[in-house]
Amino acid sequence: MSKTAAVPTAAVRARAEIDLSALRANVRALRARAQGAAVMAVVKSDAYGHGAVPCAREALAAGASWLGTTTAEEALELRAAGLPGRILCWLWVPGGPWRPAIEADIDVSLGGMWALREVVEAAWAAGRPARVHLKADTGLGRNGCQPGEDWAELVATALRAEAEGLVRIAGLFSHFACADVPGHPSIAAQLAQFREMTAYAEQQGVRPEVRHIANSAATLTLPETHFDMVRTGIAMYGVSASPELGAPKDFGLRPVMSFSAALALVKRVPGGHGVSYGHHYVTRGETTLGLVPVGYADGIPRHASGSSPVLVDGKLRTIAGRVAMDMFVVELDGEEPPVGSEAVLFGPGDRGESTAEDWAQASATIAYEIVTRIGTRVPRAYLNASA
C-alpha cells in the first residue's frame, strides 16, 4: 500500500438517515403509554435535529394530535409547510411576534402578566381571539407564573380578557424538573402544586381544553401525570430521556437517526506519531489511521476526543486525538479498510454501532445534545415515509 491513499470522488461526505417508520412506531407506542390522553409531538429545534416538517407530518399520520415548538418561528414554519391542527409555542420574549402567531392559529404560552398584556393587544389588532395556555411554575424555576398572588392575578386577568372575546384559555400547563430521576421527591411536590394551581383556576371559571405537565420521562413512567395531554419530545425520536429510566427498547422505542460518514483517507504511520491538535494522542507503534470528514462544525462533540467509538469496516474504532472543526481521526490498529468505507458514528445499534446514548456517556453529556447538535451541513436522508 502507498503511504497515503487518495480520496475518491464521493457523492456524500456524511449524512444522517432518518427512519420515519421508526418515528411512526414510536408515536404509536407513546400513544399506548398515554392511555387515552392526547399526544403532543414536540418538534422544537428542528425536531431535535431530525427535521421538523417531515417529522411533524409523520407524527400526525401516526396519531399525534398536537405539535409543540419552542419559538414562534418554528411554529410558523410548520404552518407555512401546510401542517394542520393544533400547534403550541411556549417561549416568548417581549415583542412577540404575537399577531402573526394568532393569525396563523397557533396556541401561545403565557407565564406572566407582561405576556398577557401583549397578547391581548395583538389579539385586538388581529381582530380575533388568541388561544392561550397559562404556564404555572410548579418548581422548575424557569418560565411560568409563581403560585399564590401572581397566579391569581394572571388567572383573573385572563378570564376578563376571555369575557371580552380577546383570548380563549385553551390550556393550563407546567413542566417537571426531575421526571427523569426515578423517585425524586420533587416529582410528587410538583404534581401536587400543579393540581392545586389548576384546581384554583377552574374554581375561578377557567375551562381548559387540556391540562398538561408530562414530558417524555413522565409519559413513559408516571401515568398519574398524564392528565389530558402528554408532551413527547426526545422519546418520539427513540432516545431515552435518561439511562436511569431504561433503554429505548425497554419502552418499545427505536432510535430514528443514524449518522455516518465516508472515510476520506487511510494511511500508515510510524510509532510515536502525534495525531491532531495538541498531540494528545501519540501512536504506540506502527499503525494505520483513518480520517473521518466530520467535526465539531457538524455537531461532533469536542468532548468525544479520544473516547467515542465509531464503527468502521465492522469493528468499533476509537477516536484518536482531538476532534477538530471539520474532521477527526480513528485508530485502525494496522488494518486498511478502503477509502470511502462507511464510518457509522451512531444508530439503533443493530450492526454493533454505538447509539446516541453511548456517545453521550463518552462525551459527558446527554443524548438530547448528541442528536440535536448535528449541523445543517450534514444532509438528512428520509427513509420510509408514509406517503
Rank of each mutant, 00 (worst) to 15 (best):
R322Y: 06
G144R: 07
K3H: 14
G278I: 10
L263T: 05
K315V: 14
I169R: 04
R168G: 07
L76N: 05
I213R: 04
W359D: 06
A192L: 14
A214I: 10
D19R: 15
V206S: 00
N26S: 09
P100R: 10
A123H: 02
E353G: 03
E121M: 13
E162D: 05
L78H: 01
L140F: 14
E103N: 05
G299V: 11
A75R: 07
A38S: 13
L60K: 00
P293L: 14
S363H: 03
H226F: 07
P255Y: 01
L311M: 12
E331I: 09
I366K: 11
E153M: 14
T318L: 09
A356E: 04
A241I: 08
R231K: 05
Y237T: 06
F251V: 06
P54T: 01
G141I: 11
H280W: 15
R28D: 02
G171E: 01
K44P: 00
P243D: 00
V269W: 05
V7A: 13
P301N: 12
A16D: 02
A5W: 12
V339W: 03
P208E: 00
F227Q: 07
P379C: 08
A199G: 13
G299H: 05
L345T: 06
V167A: 05
T4H: 15
A101E: 06
G334P: 07
I213W: 02
A130E: 01
G321R: 08
E149W: 00
T69Y: 00
G349A: 06
D137Y: 02
G144I: 10
A104V: 06
G85S: 08
E121Y: 03
A170Y: 11
E202Y: 03
T288G: 05
F194S: 05
W151L: 09
R317G: 05
A235G: 11
V312K: 07
